[in-house]
Design a protein around this nucleic acid. Structure first.
Lengths: 118, 118
DNA sequence: CAGAATCCTAAATGATACTG
DNA sequence: CAGTATCATTTAGGATTCTG
């Protein structure tokens, strides 16, 4: 449905023709306190509800988790699905773009683990 | 010289025993506007002086570039060497930990390029 | 349950000017 | 050349309370 993604679709719209444009775009999406963690949890555990995510992550407030999920949804990395039960549940899952983040998430985690284990 | 890196050496000291600790640590190092770009340029072009880096990146002020380099040096990712010429030059290069970021930087850039090219 | 609304503080970034 | 010093602005993140 989406044709070519415009520069404006990337928060790094200030980066136009630099060789590192893709990099800044990716860091714009992941470079926040909880954004990479949410993607990590969805990669590891599959689709999760809001409360499940909150419980899993622990030290995040509902306001910030909500904003984080909204950001990731706006970026096209996360899908939000309302499951019409009673009470209503909402399920968050990764889009294809979200799943495609797996190698980057792993590379970052590998580096960080080695770094902390020096 | 450094033994086991303590949690405090990682800005993500609030992350202690979570499975995603390495990830948050890596994002603490790279998750800023110019930090990943500096690492990218040093990976691509090798050691550079302050002015060379500034010219290469373009849209960064000397104040912010200076702070960025200080952060990366404090994190053990970049080395700062004063070359005693006249006038004095300063050369910035990647440490082993910095070079080890290459796979993560590439994975992020690859993702971003595909993302922008949808 | 899944959040939205408010208020607040610290940190990130930038513009500009100046210095050893 | 390679920064530092100020000042101003914006944003991220968090605490708390409230709601459909």
């Amino acid at each position: 449905m989406s044709e070519t993604r415009s520069d404006a679709d990337c928060a790094a719209s200030w980066c136009t023709d630099d060789p590192w444009c893709g990099l800044t775009c990716a860091v714009d999406v992941l470079g926040h306190k909880w954004h990479p963690v949410v993607v990590h949890r969805l990669l590891a555990r599959g689709p999760l509800g809001f409360g499940d995510l909150a419980d899993d992550i622990g030290a995040v407030t509902n306001k910030v988790l909500s904003e984080t999920l909204a950001d990731l949804e706006a970026a096209g990395v996360v899908d939000r699905t309302v499951v019409d039960d009673r009470p209503v549940r909402v399920e968050y899952s990764l889009t294809d773009d979200g799943e495609a983040l797996a190698p980057a998430i792993e590379a970052l985690q590998d580096w960080g683990e080695r770094y902390l284990d020096d």
